[in-house]
Design a protein around this nucleic acid. Structure first.
Length: 454
RNA sequence: CGGGGUGUAGCUCAGCCUGGUAGAGCGCCAGCUUUGGGAGCUGGAUGCCGGAGGUUCGAAUCCUCUCGCCCCGACCA
């Protein structure tokens, strides 16, 4: 190839040679990774998830209730987001992306502009037009769905994974009660109440599957339905000792929840109530089956009829030419809150214990003696081999002492640790440690790799 | 929004009461010794002591105002 060509060579758009191999894209060397861990607890963080997120270098606070997500935290956030997305898609919902900034006019039309109070962050653009940072999106999605004109185009469920802002008086608990937060919000549009119920049911089931896939047990609890009534509003709580609210439920419900197979109807057979609705004297569950635990609310779904479709004009024409306002429901999951909630539910005194589905990496590869030829080459081999097979590896190749590496690895909570040291290598073994159980086994390298790629 | 607390090095904190121009541990940089669970020694860098005003010859320290952050309560995915 002559090097004297007068124009720069244009790289081929889709040449696979220019891309890193697909399989290794998601592994990292710790020496190159931006993961600023802290040995001590920052004074501002009081609860365990907030402390661990700061200490493990997942987030940094920029203002009260506003956080920057660093590489490790962002990986987890994206994994949760993706599971939520896949289950929404599987339930027949369609993803859209609505803006974070909304015109005040939309909210004036629904009448909520005045009701919302100081929690809504308001400002003016350069043309003095009143704007706001969206705390939720019922108005906007309803406005968008005015495009639907015929009953034949219903039902529809649209969802959106986007940053929201609520100017809480008192943000706290790190990302669990931030002012800015990532939320999945879905909205269903149906022709009648039966249809709305079917949509509600579909979302309910998607939620149960979502939490199960995240590795969490979430208890659905009937929530206040306001003026509409019925059994069409539920909150979903992840069980954690530090939960904000006490919940009371039949232990059989917990077993069903764990499997992710509950429906609205099957859930109606069981008792579950939040603190404010529970009356010990009237509780139908025998004491030996009643569980009392604390929960973190990580989802809330409700049906609200034509509350927005009527004032905002989201109406369709029915088969007989009549005008029908859409029956609507909305369905929220706090994606960023889930990051904190999962940590609250899954940690020990050493650090985080990630469920495999949301772990930032599957494996932490610890080179006990960086610079040792045998250790280095064994680790490089393992790193390459596993990465090529799609295992996400965080390789601690730093020139640090063993204790530092163990401590950091326990702190960030990857499900597996593979420890490579000179003594083990000489004996033909490596150590595979399970973060959750703490179990360590000395096995051959082949056995370890087989276990990790299973 | 009421009540309380707190701002000093990247992190945790001492110094403030009783003014005299800033410290420790950890972290960071260099070197040596180490190396299987947060190492040792030596040397080094790092601070508008949250901000503004005041008192004083002199303010991290005393006074006033202000801002940030945290906790408790009322409110929320």
């Amino acid at each position: 190839m002559p090097s004297s060509r007068p124009w720069p060579r244009v790289p081929p758009l889709f040449s696979s040679a220019r891309r890193p191999p697909k399989s290794s894209r998601n592994s990292m060397r710790l020496s190159a990774y931006f993961m600023p861990t802290l040995k001590e607890n920052p004074a501002e963080a009081q609860i365990v998830s907030h402390r661990l997120m700061l200490r493990s270098g997942m987030i940094r606070q920029q203002a009260a209730g506003i956080y920057a997500w660093l590489p490790l935290g962002y990986r987890v956030l994206r994994k949760i987001e993706q599971i939520v997305r896949e289950e929404q898609d599987a339930a027949g919902a369609q993803e859209i992306l609505m803006p974070t900034v909304q015109p005040a006019e939309l909210w004036q039309r629904s009448g909520r502009y005045d009701d919302y109070g100081k929690e809504m962050l308001r400002f003016k653009d350069r043309h003095e037009r009143e704007m706001l940072f969206g705390p939720t999106a019922e108005e906007m999605v309803t406005d968008i769905c005015r495009e639907i004109r015929s009953y034949r185009d219903l039902p529809k469920i649209l969802y959106n994974i986007q940053w929201k802002f609520r100017d809480e008086v008192r943000p706290r608990f790190g990302v669990m009660r931030g002012r800015e937060f990532l939320m999945k919000d879905a909205y269903s549009f149906d022709l009648d109440k039966d249809g709305a119920r079917r949509s509600y049911e579909a979302m309910f089931r998607a939620y149960m599957r979502t939490y199960a896939r995240l590795g969490m047990t979430a208890i659905p609890v009937k929530a206040d339905t306001g003026p509409i009534g019925g059994d069409m509003s539920h909150e979903f709580h992840i069980l954690a000792e530090t939960g904000e609210s006490a919940i009371f439920f039949d232990q059989e419900l917990e077993e069903k929840s764990r499997a992710g197979e509950l429906t609205v109807d099957s859930m109606n057979q069981y008792y579950a109530a939040a603190e404010e609705k529970h009356d010990a004297d009237k509780c139908p569950v025998p004491a030996e089956r009643l569980r009392t635990m604390r929960g973190i609310e990580v989802g809330h779904i409700f049906y609200f009829g034509t509350k927005y479709s009527e004032p905002m004009g989201a109406v369709v024409q029915g088969p007989n030419g009549e005008t029908i306002a859409a029956e609507m429901g909305s369905y929220g999951i706090g994606v960023s809150r889930l990051v904190g909630a999962i940590i609250e539910a899954s940690h020990d005194e050493r650090g985080i214990i990630w469920p495999e589905a949301v772990a930032p990496f599957k494996l932490g590869l610890i080179n006990l003696k960086s610079g040792d030829a045998a250790c280095d080459s064994a680790c490089e081999d393992i790193y390459r081999t596993l990465s090529e097979q799609g295992v996400e590896v965080l390789y601690d190749d730093r020139n640090e002492r063993a204790g530092v590496k163990f401590a950091d690895m326990d702190l960030i909570g990857l499900p597996w640790q593979l420890v490579i040291g000179p003594k083990g290598l000489a004996a033909g073994v490596v150590e595979l440690k399970n973060r959750k159980s703490g179990e360590k086994q000395e096995v051959s390298l082949e056995a370890a790799l087989a276990r990790l790629t299973a």
